[in-house]
Design a protein around this nucleic acid. Sequence first.
DNA 1: AACTTTTAGGTGTATACACACCCAAATGAA
DNA 2: TTCATTTGGGTGTGTATACACCTAAAAGTT
Lengths: 139, 139
Amino acid sequence: MNDTDFRDCQDCLCFAARRAARSITQHYDRQLRGSGLRTTQFTLLSYLIIAGHSSVNAAAEYLGMERTTLTRNLRPLLALDYVAVASGDDRRVKLIAITARGREAAAAALPQWRKAQRAMSKRLGPSAFRELAAMAAAA
Amino acid sequence: MNDTDFRDCQDCLCFAARRAARSITQHYDRQLRGSGLRTTQFTLLSYLIIAGHSSVNAAAEYLGMERTTLTRNLRPLLALDYVAVASGDDRRVKLIAITARGREAAAAALPQWRKAQRAMSKRLGPSAFRELAAMAAAA
DNA sequence: AACTTTTAGGTGTATACACACCCAAATGAA
DNA sequence: TTCATTTGGGTGTGTATACACCTAAAAGTT
């Protein structure tokens, strides 16, 4: 086992993807700083605005996120009263929905998100979203 | 503020990048399962093999990672005795280097990493790494 | 009805990540 | 030589992520 055997590890697609995500996330989070929301939280709220109420499973599936991760990500939003839960007929299901306060917060953050999105879209070019979506789907 | 204003939030490049990174990371981590290493840890070890000893700052810069993140990421590797620290002439600088045990662990994980990398490279195509690197650099 | 299986969801634990802030050592200025 | 500044690095805190495992309710089976 020679040290040079590890040379191609510098082309690790996983590390490259994580690095890109870190870099892009920092850009968005800087823009959203004043809103008090992280990009992940903003995306979650915007999903709930579009989807209306949603089960935890449905939200996790739509967002391509582990269910248990979503549970954890919901916690700060629940604490801020940006998201509320209700139960449906099936008492196992927990329906999550955005609150009025959550709508306000999302509305206040929207211009900053647009600014970040415009700048990033310009830097990465028009095909970036499609490429990223393909990467998420392929793995 | 209409709900439909949030429709284009579904095209968020930040979320797409994070989602791709999650998906790809899961693929690699599944392959590396038996090695006891996460992909991030494997990459860190492979960097230390190639670079020899490195300061914390230099490693963080090379890996495109927050210095404080790297400090935290080193902890499990230090606990496993895969990485060791020494101090140079400048007593502020902490030189990190891979140990013999770390080399063994990395060598054992290398075939699994290659397997994950081959499969992912095939799925994502030959331009994926370049695209991801550009995204990391652009943001 | 009683039992099994499936389904929805949460917890425990551990890593990954980053900003704000802190400390100590080296460097530079007076 | 003081003293301010810069530089290398760590901590506190909080979010983000996921696997293994758990509980309860619904659905299916006998």
